[in-house]
């Protein structure tokens, strides 16, 4: 039940935002816990965005993997 799905923020209205889960799946979610900007990717769980994702963080994961695999 802790499944959370990334979605892109398309419209923001106060605490709520319309997000795009991809392939045309749109939904209104509460974004008060992360305060994103339009275009940001957020991780959505049970109608609430619980964390923001950004390119820098994602690239850090890649760097971490490379670092870990190279270090053996």
């Amino acid at each position: 039940m802790c499944l959370a799905i990334p979605a892109r923020v398309t419209v923001i209205e106060g605490d709520k935002a319309k997000v795009d889960f991809g392939e045309g799946v749109l939904r209104e979610v509460n974004v008060s816990l992360v305060e994103p900007k339009i275009g940001d990717y957020v991780l959505v769980h049970a109608g609430y965005a619980i964390q923001k994702m950004d390119e820098k963080d994602a690239l850090e994961t890649l760097a971490l993997w490379d670092e870990i695999l190279a270090k053996q």
């Binding site: 008060s32 816990l33 992360v34 305060e35 991780l43 619980i50 964390q51 994702m53 963080d57 994602a58 850090e60 994961t61 971490l64 870990i68 053996q72």
Partner: peptide, 27 residues
């Protein structure tokens, strides 16, 4: 397993693209 083979025990964050050390302070 790397930690076990080194004889170490530490807390690491593989999911840094989502998990921040402080979590989500607003939540």
């Amino acid at each position: 397993v790397k930690q076990l083979s080194n004889g170490s025990s530490v807390l690491e964050n593989e999911y840094a693209r989502i998990v921040k050390p402080e979590g989500n302070p607003k939540a």
